[in-house]
């Protein structure tokens, strides 16, 4: 029985080997990658799409309620409206009502708009691109104008937050950070890739306003931390810790290595530490070319006159 199975495997294996080996190898190597892409990437993209869709229908629902709320009554709102119409409305629709390309923005509040625009996520590099950190297109006055304009279109949402950091406790903030933020952003705030193509961005180069708004609004796949989870005073503590110690980590030991921990340290330890020691060994361990030359020269010179050689 077993012999027969063995025989069969042998025959099949030989038959397999007859085919073009190189082509098979390439297919074997590439197939899993495609499969993974298929099963991992597609559902992730689909879920993001569904999320956007849900968002969209919510906001369009609100339009009917507050359709007349729009309008630019102050110079700031007028500026905001102009900027919005020029830069945002082609996707987010006139009066931020949304379109097939992008969700409506009504009811999100000035804080959310401020966060997305000031971080450079919006406007996107091109329609359909993933939001990515880049230099903000507008200055803070323009950003605020857009934010206030969109907020003026409907009620609700988060206002632009200016946390007052006086008397905030970084000790408390550190503890809150370790509990709520470190599980994704890492304890040093370096950020990291999460599963299924999601990621937690690095927390460097943020303003206190952005930190507070992100906590309260939960951009992208980040959860919303409401006042029930992080109270108002705790938010101040957290913002104080992030803006003081995550933005400017205390690195008395020298080069901070980006706060990514043992991976970077291991590379330095192996390639610079052990590497330098090996170079040193190479330098002093071998007889140098000069020494060898001298040896061979002295040998060569003495050869003619030598009687010293001892067999």
């Amino acid at each position: 029985m077993i012999e027969a199975v063995k025989q069969r495997i042998k025959i099949h294996f030989k038959a397999l080997l007859k085919y073009d080996k190189a082509a098979r190898l390439v297919i074997f190597a590439l197939a899993p990658i495609f499969l993974v892409q298929l099963f991992v990437e597609l559902p992730a993209a689909a879920s993001v799409g569904a999320h956007l869709g849900r968002h969209h229908s919510q906001t369009t629902g609100q339009i009917t309620q507050t359709a007349a709320a729009g309008g630019a009554r102050t110079p700031q709102l007028q500026e905001g409206r102009t900027l919005f119409d020029e830069n945002c409305s082609s996707c987010h629709g006139i009066n931020a009502a949304g379109s097939k390309l992008a969700p409506g923005l009504r009811g999100l509040g000035a804080g959310v708009i401020n966060l997305w625009v000031s971080s450079g996520w919006m406007p996107l590099a091109n329609p359909g691109a993933e939001p990515a950190r880049k230099p903000a297109l507008f200055n803070s006055q323009q950003t605020n104008a857009i934010s206030e304009y969109v907020a003026s279109l409907s009620k609700g949402g988060i206002p632009i937050l200016y946390p007052d950091l006086k008397g905030a406790s970084v000790e408390e903030g550190f503890s809150i950070f370790a509990l709520n933020c470190a599980p994704c952003h890492t304890i040093t705030g370096a950020g990291d890739a999460l599963s299924n193509g999601l990621y937690a961005p690095p927390l460097h180069g943020l303003t206190s306003t952005q930190v507070a708004e992100a906590v309260r609004s939960g951009p992208n796949n980040m959860p919303v931390f409401s006042t029930g989870v992080i109270s108002k005073s705790q938010l101040k503590d957290l913002v104080a810790y992030v803006t003081k110690y995550i933005e400017h980590p205390d690195n008395p030991g020298g080069l901070g290595l980006g706060g990514v921990g043992p991976v970077a340290e291991g590379f330095i330890g192996l390639f610079i530490g052990v590497g330098l020691c090996l170079l040193v060994a190479f330098w002093i361990g071998d007889r140098t070319e000069k020494e060898e030359k001298e040896d061979s020269h002295s040998k060569g010179n003495k050869k003619s006159e030598t009687g010293v050689k001892h067999a």
Partner: peptide, 23 residues
């Protein structure tokens, strides 16, 4: 010159707290 294991930035170990990406 090069900082290693900055445990002050990591904070004390508390079983219910965790940092992502620890190696």
């Amino acid at each position: 010159l090069i900082q290693i294991n900055p445990i002050w930035q990591y904070g004390p170990y508390v079983p219910y707290k965790v940092s992502y990406a620890v190696q």
